[in-house]
Design a protein around this nucleic acid. Structure first.
Lengths: 306, 306
DNA sequence: CTGTTAGCGCCTTCAG
DNA sequence: CTGAAGGCGCTAACAG
C-alpha cells in the first residue's frame, strides 16, 4: 500500500504539499496540485486513517452502547444512527451491555483514544459515571444535559386517550420497573383517566418480573392494555389468546414505544421519529455546548395499524 | 492523559522497558517491573490504542456489514458476533448496506487501515469483489472459501417433514427471490414431498414481491406455509386472519430461518446456532487458511413453540 | 506557494 | 536485562 512518501516522490513535491492537496487547501499551485492528483491516481493512494488519527488526536469513531435487553427496540435506533453517522463521515463502534459494569467496561474503549465519543442507548439500569463526551438516548438516568429523553408522560396520556376513545374504559398498564420514565408513564396514565373521570384501579397496574403474567392471573377486568414496548406487545399478543382474551376484540393492546414504521406494527403505538432522533444525537456530539436549549423531551406520534 | 514518556520518567526507566512490562515480556527485572506498574497505577496510564495500531499495522477492528433489508434477522447475528469479538479483544465497526454499491463503499473503510477484516452478513444481493480478508455469513453469493453458508435444503426438508407430521399435507411455500439458497429451499421442499408421495403443486409456490399477498389471492388450498424468515412469518400471522384463515388451526406457519431463542418464536421454525456461528466466523478470521475442511454448511435445528 | 522539521504515542531492533 | 534510536504515516508550525 502506497504511502504519502511514495506520492510526494512521484509527484516531485514534499509530503506537506501532498497533505495540503488532499486536505483541500487552497494554497497550492495548480501545477503541483495536478501532479499530486495524478500520482495519487497512479499509485491508488489512500491516506492511512490510523496515522491521521494519531496526528489529529481524533478517530472519527463513535462508540454506541446498546442495552442488550430490549435489542429489538435498540436495533431501530442503530440503523438510524448508523445512517446519520455515515453521512457525517463517522464510524460506529458497536457494543452491547446489560448492566452498569459492562457499560463502564465499554467506556474504557474510548478512554484510550479509539472513540471520540459514545452514545448509550436504551439502558434500563443505572449508569456508571459517564465522561463528558458521552450522551444518552432513552436511558433511565436523567443525565440532564447531553441526553435525549422521551416524553413518556405525553405518550402514556395520548395512548390512554386513544384507548378510551376506542371505547376501552378499563385500561390496564404494564409499566417499566422504575425510574423517571416509569414515573412519567404513571403520570400520563393518571391524567388521562382523570380527564375522563375514570376511576384509578391500582390492581390494573403492574411492573417488574412477569408483570403480564401476574396481571392475567389477577382477577381484574380490562379491555385496554398499555405495554412499554413492542417486545411486551408481542408477548401480550401471544399470551392473551391463551387466556381466552381475543385481541383486539376483548383487549386492545397499545405499545408505548415502537420503533416500527407506520403500518408495520400489529397494535396501535407511540412511535418515535428515529431519523430525527439520530440527527439530534449527532448534533449533540458535534455542537459544543449550545443546543442546551433544545433539550426538551422528544414526543412520539400516534400510530395506528392498517 | 498520561503517555508512555510520563510513565518511564516516573518509573525511572526507559520507554522500552515500560513497553516491555506492559506487553508482558518476561525479560524484565522484577524491580523495574514493579516500578513501572506503580507508575502506571499512579498516573492511571492507558496505552493509546491508536498509536499502538499505527505501530502494529493492525487495529483490532472488524468491520461488520449487515444487509439492511432483513434487519431483525441480522440483529441476532450482531449480538452474537459482538460478544465473540469482545471475548477476542476485538472491536465491531458496524455498517448497514442494501446493495453491492454500498457494500463496496463500506469496504473502503478497511482499505485504509481502519479495519483488519470485514464480515458481510445476510446479503440477498450479489456482492462486489471482496478483499481476501473478508468473510461472508448467510450471503447469496457462494463465496466458496471464507464464508459460512446455511444448509437451506436441510431446513426446508425438515420443515416440510414437520408440517406433514402435523397433518398438513398441502404445504405452500414462500421462497426467497433467487440465488443458491432459494434453489436449496426448493430442493428440500421437493424432497420432503416426494418422500411422502405428495404431489407437487406449483401454484403453492411463490417468491419475490408481495409473494404472500399473491398466494392468498390465488385460489389454492393449503394448510401449511413455509416462509423464509421471521419477518415474513410475522406478516403471515397478521395477514392470514384477515383472509379468514386462523393460525395454526387452518394454516400452520413455519419460519425457515429464525434467530429467536427457543420458545420465543410464535411459530415452529428452523433456528441457527448464533453463538457457534459467531465463533466460527471468528475462527475464520483468526485461522490462516486451515479450517477450509470445516466449510460444511451449517444445519439449523427444529424449534417448536411452547 | 513550498519544503523542512518536529511531533502524535508506541513498538522494536540493536547494541551494550 | 536495558536504553538509545529509528520507524509507523500523517499533520502542522515555521521559515523561506
Amino acid at each position: 500500500m502506497a504511502n504519502i512518501n511514495d506520492v510526494s516522490r512521484l509527484a516531485q513535491v514534499s509530503k506537506a504539499t501532498v497533505s495540503r492537496v488532499l486536505s483541500g487547501s487552497r494554497n497550492v499551485k495548480e501545477e503541483s496540485r495536478l501532479a499530486v492528483m495524478r500520482a495519487v491516481e497512479v499509485l491508488n493512494y489512500k491516506p492511512n486513517v490510523i496515522a491521521q488519527s494519531l496526528s489529529n488526536q481524533s478517530t472519527g469513531c463513535i462508540g454506541v452502547v446498546c442495552a442488550s435487553e430490549n435489542i429489538n427496540q435498540t436495533t431501530g435506533y442503530l440503523h438510524a444512527l448508523e445512517k446519520q453517522l455515515r453521512l457525517n463521515q463517522k464510524h460506529l463502534l458497536l457494543r452491547f451491555a446489560s448492566d452498569a459494569a459492562s457499560v463502564a467496561h465499554s467506556l474504557n474503549e474510548i478512554g484510550n483514544g479509539l472513540c471520540d465519543a459514545v452514545i448509550v442507548i436504551g439502558a434500563r439500569f443505572p449508569l456508571p459515571p459517564l465522561p463528558h463526551s458521552a450522551i444518552t438516548i432513552d436511558c433511565l438516568q436523567s443525565h440532564t444535559e447531553r441526553s435525549i429523553q422521551f416524553d413518556h408522560s405525553f405518550a402514556a396520556e395520548t395512548a390512554s386517550q386513544y384507548l378510551i376513545n376506542q371505547g376501552r374504559r378499563n385500561i390496564a398498564l404494564i409499566n417499566l420497573h422504575d425510574g423517571d420514565a416509569a414515573e412519567q408513564v404513571s403520570q400520563g396514565y393518571h391524567q388521562a383517566l382523570e380527564h375522563h373521570l375514570l376511576p384509578y384501579n391500582r390492581q390494573r397496574v403492574f411492573s417488574g418480573e412477569n408483570a403480564l403474567q401476574r396481571l392475567l392471573n389477577q382477577n381484574v377486568s380490562f379491555n385496554g392494555l398499555l405495554v412499554p414496548d413492542d417486545a411486551m406487545a408481542q408477548e401480550a399478543l401471544r399470551l392473551l389468546p391463551q387466556f381466552g382474551r381475543q385481541v383486539p376484540a376483548d383487549v386492545m393492546v397499545f405499545s408505548l414505544d415502537s420503533t416500527l414504521p407506520q403500518g408495520a406494527s400489529a397494535v396501535p403505538a407511540i412511535a418515535y421519529p428515529l431519523e430525527k432522533l439520530a440527527q439530534r444525537a449527532i448534533a449533540l456530539l458535534t455542537a459544543p455546548l449550545s443546543a442546551v436549549a433544545g433539550t426538551a423531551p422528544v414526543r412520539g406520534t400516534l400510530m395506528t395499524p392498517f
